[in-house]
């Protein structure tokens, strides 16, 4: 059983539809006591980092997520949900994140090192470059195209948390990140055709395997 964390940020329906499509049992809840009963957590989210952290902290979900992951429960963040796993973001003023992965989140500069301006958000289909093929989310998959929509991007000096990247203008965009049982995707796997569905299936499988152990 997967618990999709509902904290009032954006459109969770497409994530629910995707899990239905792969016949993965899930609950959608904002209540820690209900989410505690699940075997793995999905943290989706669109909107601003600051609003999201305010919601997560106000509802006690931030502490809950930290505690659950300390106890080894698998967690996957999607889009903003992935960014929240990191230490801090500069979106609408400096905000502390969940701090489960090392790194920070900054806006795309909108201009390359050579002075060429580019569009922000990074929106559309971009192809993945695998940096760590053995990352559980990537098992059995090829470097396919996935669907991105975001204006902020993770920056980290710890390359061991980078499992796959996409290239947008002169930026290496962390696309799949993870360390142990904490992972995430910057793109929307639920909207990313076969590759995306493969990644969601991999996460569900990892959760089911963890349950058996």
């Amino acid at each position: 059983m997967i618990g999709i964390i509902d904290y009032g940020m954006g459109n969770l329906h497409s994530v629910c539809s995707a899990l239905k499509r792969i016949e993965q049992p899930y609950i959608l809840s904002g209540k820690p006591e209900e989410l505690h009963e699940t075997d793995g957590l999905l943290l989706p989210g669109v909107g601003s980092f600051k609003d999201a952290m305010t919601e997560l902290e106000g509802t006690g979900l931030a502490d809950f997520i930290k505690k659950e992951t300390e106890n080894g429960k698998p967690l996957m963040g999607i889009c903003l949900g992935m960014q929240l796993l990191f230490e801090r973001s500069t979106e609408n003023g400096l905000t502390e994140g969940l701090g489960l992965l090392p790194g920070k989140v900054d806006r795309f500069r909108g201009v390359t090192g050579e002075g060429k301006s580019y569009k922000v958000p990074h929106m559309g289909w971009n192809n993945l470059h695998f940096l760590q093929k053995e990352q559980p989310l990537l098992i059995g998959l090829d470097e396919g195209y996935v669907y991105f929509v975001h204006s902020f991007v993770v920056q980290t000096d710890n390359r061991e948390v980078l499992a796959a990247a996409a290239h947008y203008e002169d930026v290496e965009v962390p696309a799949v990140v993870g360390r142990n049982h904490i992972m995430g995707t910057q793109f929307h796997p639920e909207k990313s055709s076969e590759t995306g569905m493969g990644i969601l299936k991999n996460f569900c499988q990892l959760v089911e395997e963890g349950k058996q152990r």
């Binding site: 329906h13 497409s14 539809s17 995707a18 239905k20 499509r21 669907y147 929307h188 639920e190 909207k191 990313s192 055709s193 076969e194 995306g196 569905m197």
Partner: peptide
């Protein structure tokens, strides 16, 4: 459509 397709 949302129930069947994984594209935006």
């Amino acid at each position: 459509v949302a129930a069947e397709l994984a594209i935006p």
